[in-house]
Design a protein around this nucleic acid. Sequence first.
DNA 1: TTTCTTGCTACAATTACTGTAGCATCACGC
DNA 2: GCGTGATGCTACAGTAATTGTAGCAAGAAA
Lengths: 107, 107
Amino acid sequence: MAKEAGESRVRGSRTGRPIMALLDLLGRRWSLRILWELRNEPLTSRALRAACDEASPTVLQARLTELREAGFVELGEGGGYGLTPLGRDLRGTFMPLHKFAERWKKS
Amino acid sequence: MAKEAGESRVRGSRTGRPIMALLDLLGRRWSLRILWELRNEPLTSRALRAACDEASPTVLQARLTELREAGFVELGEGGGYGLTPLGRDLRGTFMPLHKFAERWKKS
DNA sequence: TTTCTTGCTACAATTACTGTAGCATCACGC
DNA sequence: GCGTGATGCTACAGTAATTGTAGCAAGAAA
């Protein structure tokens, strides 16, 4: 699907603004969750699926492909999905969501 | 759908962990985009729709309802949707996405 | 009372996702 | 070599979510 960062056939905005492409990609089902579950260590496709409440392998596979094409996730040589340096960069930007979620719970 | 923060019938995880509920809510189509478009000022439902590339009012309305129930968005008295204090708090946590998106584009 | 704009809904068509099953490949123990 | 188990990944029918278009009721002007 998306082939290069910030361009290409992205649902919604086609203005080329990378933030739109990013919001679109992250707004697909399981995208955020996958990045979240990979935040600490790489996981095999099956471990990842278990972490994602046994979500359908069909979507997970689709999301993983998209996230790989986006350059956020990679498949290690010995198997197992992990974050790329760029993916770790992205992780850094939404790790604060964790603390926000706690604040949210209290409201 | 969701009625209170961090609980209730949330797709995916039912562990009660608020981060899961948050990732699920934000992972629905147009959720992130709506919050993004409201980041600066309140918008009327129609202005919001225009900002969201004329997305279907059906989904937008559904997302707005969910985001309102989550306490992130509110409908002002004179009309127009805006972020609540909690919503502005949330906005703060993913505003860095903008800069990340720029870095991403360059990769 | 006509003409806006507002928030919001109906509904059929289309797309996305789910759940289950299973394949091909590789490494291991034997 | 032959089973056993794990890996990444795919097929496919059923279900749920989203799209696109049209339109409604209420309020504010004019």
